[in-house]
Design a protein around this nucleic acid. Structure first.
Lengths: 212, 212
DNA sequence: GCACATATCACCCTAAAAGGGGATTGTGGA
DNA sequence: TCCACAATCCCCTTTTAGGGTGATATGTGC
């Protein structure tokens, strides 16, 4: 069965060239091509696409806002952003809103075909520069340290309970140690983390992704 | 100039077929092909590759451990993992260790060539299933809500200071309000977040990435 | 005007946390 | 052997946080 595609793209020229490009392939059927994202829910319901090609900068509703509306109709529909924008803001917002791919317009039209294939195969087609940004961001968000503060095993145990919101008394009970022992560990932790109270410690640990 | 490539792959057959595949392309020069990652630093220094193809499961040192050693020699060297493993553990560890791409062996050899091209172009070549996992993980880590708890603007201000580790007194001073007013806001916040104390609130907010 | 939410402030009391000072074991290394 | 350090516990004081129960002003919407 042919892949059903709907296009949202305000630029007349780009839109018609996409329709031509995709129309030449028997594997694709363009069931809709619109210059804006108004009434996007109804259109998607009528045109039942497998893949939506979505521009970001359009008059009226912008492409990013349209993403959740499309996924609301059917979360199985794949959304590929097709845009000239390379800035982190639009990129991250799009991906977090639920876009499955992000292809830059400066790449060749053939790449868009490849992206459609990839997204149909369950992939996440990203232009090289975009993939790089996502990878770097991904990496940054997963860095964890905890070694540099030289916490002991026991201190890490105490800290893990602390950042779950446990009170000192509860931590002591959980670890089967005396209240004062627990306080003693906490004091050492505070000293090592250069903080003055439990709240600061929680904030620091979670903000810097220590322990985990 | 041809792209210089070094291969680490313990399987004799796979390794030689890679050498043949890449040798047939004039754009590539394989300057090294090794069955394990022992002495990886010295080898990389001698063979000065642009791109390293790295298997994960090898006798002796595994591929993931080799990543930082390669990047240590020259962080400009691109590393493409080439493996049969699709599990999250190896994938995330590889990417966090500094791998620039992750290609599954089950994909066609042509995809490996495409991946080398993509990584040379500054991209992050990921097999479709892998790209999907990275994207989902990326999205999960950036979800923020704060609307669903119906906090008022003022409450959000107070909460933002709280999660920076500020004491009640400090928050009050910062916002130029009375200590009791601040406590009043905090009580309302705790009620709305269904928590019982500031530490739980901080833990909940940072763990669920509310506000921000 | 009235209901309602928000933001502001006040006072009381208890519980929890933090800061400071100890002390005792046991383990592992210099 | 002795020292350092981790882990355990105890006592004391001060500060902070939290629960309860109010009040007042200021908007906003019907």
């Amino acid at each position: 069965m042919a892949t059903r595609i709907v296009i949202f793209e305000d630029n007349e020229k780009v839109r018609s060239s996409l329709v031509t490009l995709l129309g030449n392939e028997s594997a694709y059927v363009v069931t809709g091509a619109h210059p804006d994202a108004s009434d996007v829910g109804r259109r998607i319901r009528q045109e039942t696409p497998h893949v939506v090609i979505l521009d970001i900068d359009m008059p009226g509703m912008n492409g990013i806002s349209a993403i959740p509306l499309i996924k609301e109709v059917d979360p199985e529909i794949s959304i590929v952003m097709y845009t000239q924008f390379e800035d982190d803001e639009k990129l991250f917002k799009s991906l977090c809103a639920g876009a499955d791919g992000y292809v830059l317009k400066k790449t060749s039209p053939g790449n868009l075909l490849a992206a459609i294939e990839e997204v149909r195969a369950g992939g996440a087609p990203l232009s090289p520069a975009v993939a790089r940004k996502v990878l770097f961001s991904f990496r940054d968000q997963r860095q964890s340290s905890h070694a540099k503060y030289e916490l002991t095993d026991r201190e890490i145990e105490v800290l893990q309970l602390l950042i779950k919101g446990y009170s000192v008394k509860l931590i002591a009970a959980e670890l089967h140690i005396a209240y004062d022992t627990c306080r003693s560990h906490l004091r050492n932790i505070y000293r090592k983390l250069h903080v003055n109270c439990g709240k600061e410690a929680i904030a620091k640990v979670l903000a810097e992704k220590i322990v985990l």
